[in-house]
Each structure stands twice: as C-alpha cells, then as structure tokens.
Nucleic acid binder design. Structure first.
Lengths: 239, 239
DNA sequence: TGGTATTTGTCCGTATGTATC
DNA sequence: GGATACATACGGACAAATACC
C-alpha cells in the first residue's frame, strides 16, 4: 500500500536529518536538485519541505535554501507532546501501567455541564473518572465526557483498558483535531486523595476538546497531572 | 503594500469565521465556489484553507468539505500561547509592567554552559537574569543567553525595556523558529527570593531555543513562571 | 441499490517575482 | 549584472471519498 509521494519524500528527508546524513546547520540540496533525485515535480518537493518546517526540522530562507535546525533532544521518555493515549505512551516506554475507574455514569448534558464542556445541551454522554498509574504510582486523574452517539457502547472494562483503542478498532472513530489548554492549579481534596503528589501542592491541568473526522466534538477531557512527570514540547515558526 | 493573495483570502475567511458569517459546524463554500468568489486558482484557495486548518479554525473531509470548528474561547487575557514578548503581552492587556535586571554579564560558552544551552563552545554571550513584574507582582524570572555576534550591543537599559524591540528595530533580527519545553519544578531559593509564589511550591519552567532567519540559535532562555498566571494553548491536527 | 455529480486530495508543468550569492 | 534558489500563482489532469437522486 504505497503512501503518497510527498509523504514518502518527507519521511525520507526526515530520517536522513535524524541520522545526520544532512547535518545540523547544513543546507538541504536545492529544490530543483531534489526534484531530480526523487523524480517528481517541484510542488511535491515543496510540500515535503513544508512538513519538515512544521516539525521544526528545517527553516527556509528566500533565495538561500532550507537549513537543518534539528537537534537530537534525547527523545524525552516522559509525557507528553502529541496526541498519544496513556496506554500507548506507557507501552512505548516499557512502563508498567494500570487504569482504575473511579466513576462511570451516563448523563444528559445540562446547562452546568454545557458551560463547562461546551457540549450541546440535551446530548447524552458518558461521564468517566479514572486514575492512571505508572510503575505503580497514581500520576494522572482523567475526567472524560464522551458523546454516546459517537462513542457507543463504552463499558467499565473498556475504560480500564483503552477507550481510544476501542474507538478506533471497534467504532472506526479517530481524533482528528485536539485543542488543549494547560494551567497549573492548587491541588484539591480529590487530588490529594487519589494522586501521588510527592510534596507538590499543585497539579498540571490539561483541558482538551477533541473532534472526530465529522467535525463533531465528541470528547471533553480534563487531565490532572502530578507535576513530576509532565513534559510538554512545542515549536512555532513565525513568518 | 499588498500582501499575497492567499494570505488575504486566509485572513478574510478567518475574520468571517470569527464574526460567525460562517458558523460553528457549518461547511465553507466549496473550493471551486471560493475560486470564483476570490477570482483565483484552486491552489491559492487551498493554501488559504491549509492555514485555517493549521489554526484549528476548520477541518476538512475528503469529498465533503471544510467544516468550521472554531469556537470563541473568550480570548484568555493571560499568558501565553504564542511568541510574544513580555512587553507586548503586558501592553496588549493594559497591564502595568516592569522588568528588573538581576544579573548582566558577558561570558564565553564553556563545557558547562554548552551542556545546558547547546550553544557552541567558545561563543561569546550575554548572560542576563531578569524578574518581570505584572501589576506590581514579580511573576516571571528569565535567564537568557544571547549570542553577542547576533545580539550586538545589549545594555542593562535595553534589558530593562525590551530586548526584542531592540533586536528587531535596531538590528533587524527576528525570531523565526522557537522550540520550547515545559515542565513543572519545585521552587528554588532563588524563586522564593524573587517571585510572588502565593503559596505554590512549584514553578512552570519554559526552556526556549530561538533561531533567527539565518538558522542560528542566538538565544537560550529559561523562564520560570509563577503558576497562577500561566496559561498555554495548543492545537494539533492528525491525518 | 446503483449511477452520477460534487468535492477534496494528489501531482504535474509552467510562468513570474524576488532574495541571495 | 547574471546565476541560483525560494515564493507565489495559474492551469490542468486524475483519483478517491462523499452526497445526491
């Protein structure tokens, strides 16, 4: 199953940068050179490079070229830069993980919940509270609202394993856009009760609004992280 | 000074979405319709839409169209989502602001500093520590390293006002790419001494690597924020 | 159910402008 | 000034997913 051309080129260049075939501060070959190398149009090369820019791998300058600005940041083993489920993260890092369900109930969105989640009033949702354990320590508390019409058939068992795995494998539902907001808040009694705070009197609160391919906001989640193992990366390009 | 066509279209569509001319959950007109409306090629329309996707304003689906997923999030007046200088931020929000310089020295990068900042050994830098005050409260401690060959002629006076203003106006230097990492750490004695922590025993530490148009990493900054007024937004699209 | 039109996604080629070397 | 290189814009062709009748 061949991917698209520009993705192939993008991944090839990306790998060559990661392996220092193209080194930090070096210019990539010119677009016209790459056109010959990959036997494609200039547009296609430019799409590939646009993706590298977006990833913070290169930076272009008019009339000069695309310069590598990627540095190997000893891929931090901790959470979390992108959209990755807790289970995936834990498995990728070979960490013991466990999820305990605190609350599992079905509700109808009322004025209060609407205010808080922006889900339309009257919609039926699953309301789930879970505590995530890593290497035996409770480090995250998740409070989810899932639209029942999109995330049909959730159960406590699924919530203990991986809701995302269920959604993608069973229901063919995927997160397409995730909007997130991060703040640091004082711990609550709930935090104190359920999380291993290691002396911190604050938690990192990540509020997410997640949209599926149909543009429906089917999930609202508040994740409360213990400060110790929370890492966030981002990169921005200004034009 | 006319901007480029696709930026004009992008900004026009963006504004129409913000003003609910195109409403939440509604489909934009088809690309071919927009081609007629803006009298341009389809590629140009597609570039404009690609930018809207990147901003989390719309989401496209093959064969269907571009659906508006923008919701007005009562633009939080607090810090910080994008690359904006402290002075700009304070002025935009009509807040009283002040910057006090704690340390201002010139150094040569040695092994230790290199390890910490990734700046090349032997390069001369300004090393600056500053405390930022908002409405009279000390809320951020910045520790900067600026390459002297790029940020020529810095002074304490400039550091008390705005280094970025100086760089852009006097030296015509701009931040093109910013890579950032965020963690939450225990407060240090320095934090306790200089910041108004309001009972928090943690600070948000943002480490930034900033590149200019020539691809040179000319600034390394560690910003230590009091938790109370720290907000961060982001959005990601998955394909 | 099935066929057709619509709409987005990919790719190509060409031309022109502008910044850099 | 000339050569090189990226940036913008146009146009056309076809594929693939969706919507409509």
């Amino acid at each position: 199953m061949p991917k698209t051309k520009y993705i192939e080129i993008y991944e090839d260049l990306k790998q060559k940068i990661e392996k220092s075939f193209y080194e930090y501060q070096q210019l990539l070959p010119s677009e016209n050179t790459l056109v010959k190398e990959y036997e494609c149009s200039r547009n296609t090369v430019r799409r590939a490079i646009a993706n590298l820019i977006n990833d913070g791998y290169v930076q272009t300058k008019h009339g000069q070229g695309a310069r590598v600005i990627y540095q190997d940041f000893k891929q931090n083993e901790y959470m979390f830069g992108e959209t990755e489920s807790f289970k995936e993260f834990a498995q990728r890092n070979h960490k013991k993980h466990e999820t305990k369900v605190i609350t599992f109930e079905e509700l109808t969105v009322d004025e209060t919940i609407h205010e808080h989640t922006r889900m339309p009033i009257g919609v039926e949702v699953y309301h789930i509270k879970r505590v995530r354990h890593l290497e035996g320590s409770p480090v995250i508390m998740d409070v989810n609202y899932f639209r029942k019409d999109v995330a049909k058939g959730l159960t406590v068992e699924i919530a203990e394993d991986s809701i995302y795995e269920y959604l993608s494998k069973e229901l063919n539902q995927r997160a397409v856009t995730a909007k997130r907001k991060m703040v640091v808040e004082r711990t609550t009694d709930m935090d104190e009760k359920y999380l291993k705070l290691d002396g911190f009197n604050s938690v990192v609160v990540v509020t997410s609004h997640i949209f599926n391919a149909d543009g429906i906001m089917f999930e609202h989640t508040q994740s409360r992280h213990t400060p110790g193992n929370f890492v966030f990366f981002d990169q921005t390009q200004r034009k």
